[in-house]
């Protein structure tokens, strides 16, 4: 589904990603962990098409197409979704209107008719129940004045409404209490299928208790330095990132 080869990217002349290789297949859940400043959010932003970043090397293929050539909205049209670490507040645009516009723009991209009001409402009610979201929140301006937990739940709610093939969730767990994490994780798990995939970006192992990944990768200093299964996350939790750094130092001195 997603194939990243030797991806190098940076911002304002500073290289952040120094050769990322990663392949995600349909039905898989991957987790990328790593210390602050290792390039996790940069990777998410580059995949979603944020123009602040400059890609200097490598390629990203999504569903067999060259992703780096596409505008952000086209990437979404192809089935990519980014759950933002810091969802943006948009004054004067209700969450409902926003989601309705997005749903119908994606349908248009796929050559489908727009959803009528009844069908849209039915879909919304179903996903609202899944994410424990109430109507008043959706009538408010998008993310404006939302609590941290509301913002993150709203991200997963959008994901549920837009039904992407690949969802990249950038630190969706940060700032959440345990109940909120449970709701978010439950939402993600319900949406998992053999046809879609999830890439979780997280600092902590905690989220991975609720969403069990198939693969865990450690990003350090712009490179994936270690990959493994969910046990790797547990090991990181126990030993901290230092053991990775130490391993690397040993490797470099040998």
């Amino acid at each position: 589904m997603l194939k990243i080869q030797n991806l190098q990217a940076g911002i304002e002349g500073r290289t952040i990603l120094k050769g990322i290789n990663l392949e995600i297949k349909a039905g898989e859940v991957h987790a990328i962990m790593g210390p602050n400043g290792s390039g996790k959010s940069t990777l998410a932003s580059v995949i979603a098409g944020k123009t602040d970043y400059e890609v200097t090397e490598g390629r990203i293929e999504f569903m067999g197409k060259d992703l780096l050539d596409m505008l952000p909205e086209k990437r979404a049209g192809e089935g990519l979704f980014l759950g933002f670490q810091y969802p943006v507040e948009i004054p004067g645009l209700s969450t409902t209107n926003f989601i309705k516009t997005a749903v119908n723009e994606l349908r248009k991209y796929r050559g489908e008719e727009p959803l009528d009001a009844v069908a849209f409402l039915r879909l919304m009610k179903e996903k609202m129940a899944l994410m424990d979201i109430q109507q008043p929140l959706l009538s408010r301006s998008l993310n404006e004045g939302f609590s941290g937990g509301e913002k993150k739940r709203n991200e997963i709610f959008q994901m549920a409404m837009l039904q992407p093939k690949l969802a990249i969730l950038d630190e969706t767990d940060s700032g959440l209490d345990i109940d909120a994490i449970r709701i978010v994780a439950n939402g993600v798990n319900k949406l998992r299928s053999k046809d879609n995939a999830v890439l979780l970006i997280t600092h902590y192992q905690r989220l991975l208790d609720f969403i069990i990944p198939d693969f865990v990768h450690v990003l350090y200093n712009g490179r994936i330095v270690k990959s493994g299964t969910k046990e790797l996350a547990l090991e990181l939790e126990l030993k901290g990132y230092d053991f990775i750094k130490n391993d690397l130092n040993i490797a470099e001195t040998v």
């Binding site: 952000p72 909205e73 979404a76 969802p87 943006v88 997005a102 723009e105 991209y109 837009l162």
Partner: peptide, 15 residues
């Protein structure tokens, strides 16, 4: 930032 947020949901730049 707002523009990118909306576009990342499939909404064209113009809209």
């Amino acid at each position: 930032e707002g523009l990118f947020y909306l576009r990342s949901r499939g909404i064209s730049e113009k809209i």
